[in-house]
């Protein structure tokens, strides 16, 4: 099933387009990496896909099962948020349940268990009562990923998620993503520069070179 289909997308910031006539389909249950040199518009492509930016021309179609709440996004600067933000790690991760809870519904037992499991999966359960500003860059990044995972999205979009993580954490992260794609049928798209390390876990690589390309052929 195609979750999201981009056709002949053109987009730029000033007068010069940075994305030229790009077409790509995102299938359900894929683990995809978006890679390319600096300035190749990797983040821009993600933002266009997520509807945070509008293309100059071309179309973006979403599957009818694709709703706003079923997508979670962890931006590139996720770990550089306001260090004084007054939240404990667990409070931040719990906020991932807000889209499902709406304005008034209270947390249920399953959601508490999900938060605990996710925090354990990213290795932050012991630090759950720490203020998020007190965490290291890599730990903050993991807290943001945990928050996105708690949302239980069908599509998880991550912009350079392993920045600040050590090698062991990066490998554990790729394995974790691979397992949620395989066992839960989730779709994961991530921007990365570490293709060599991640390649064995991926289904597809979208390599942007800043020119007119069609990315639907398997890589």
């Amino acid at each position: 099933m195609i979750l999201c289909s981009l056709r002949n997308i053109v987009f730029g910031y000033e007068h010069e387009p940075v994305i030229r006539n790009v077409s790509v389909d995102i299938h359900a249950g894929e683990f995809i990496a978006v890679s390319g040199p600096n300035g190749a518009a990797k983040t821009t492509l993600l933002k266009l896909m997520l509807g945070l930016m509008k293309p100059w021309s071309g179309t973006i179609q979403y599957s009818s099962e694709f709703t706003k709440g079923s997508v979670a996004y962890v931006p590139q600067q996720a770990s550089s948020f306001n260090p004084g933000f007054p939240s404990k790690v667990i409070e931040l991760v719990r906020s991932g349940c807000y889209p499902e809870l709406g304005l008034f519904r209270r947390f249920i037992k399953e959601q508490h268990a999900l938060v605990e499991d996710t925090l354990r999966a990213v290795g932050l359960w012991e630090l759950r009562s720490r203020k998020i500003g007190e965490l290291s860059g890599g730990q903050k990044q993991r807290a943001c990923i945990a928050r996105a995972m708690v949302q239980q999205p069908d599509l998880l979009v991550l912009d350079e998620p392993v920045t600040g993580m050590d090698t062991a954490s990066r490998i554990r992260f790729y394995e974790w993503m691979r397992s949620i794609v395989k066992t839960q049928g989730k779709t994961v798209i991530m921007v990365t520069h570490g293709l060599d390390e991640a390649r064995e876990y991926l289904d597809r690589v979208i390599y942007l070179e800043g020119k007119e390309e069609n990315y639907n052929a398997p890589v």
């Binding site: 933002k47 945070l52 996004y73 807000y98």
Partner: peptide
């Protein structure tokens, strides 16, 4: 009080909040 959850998300990070609805 009523909008504390969306306001928390908005204050933390606008783009993430927009994507999550």
């Amino acid at each position: 009080l009523v909008l504390r959850r969306p306001l928390y998300s908005l204050t933390f990070e606008e783009e993430t909040a927009a994507v999550s609805g």
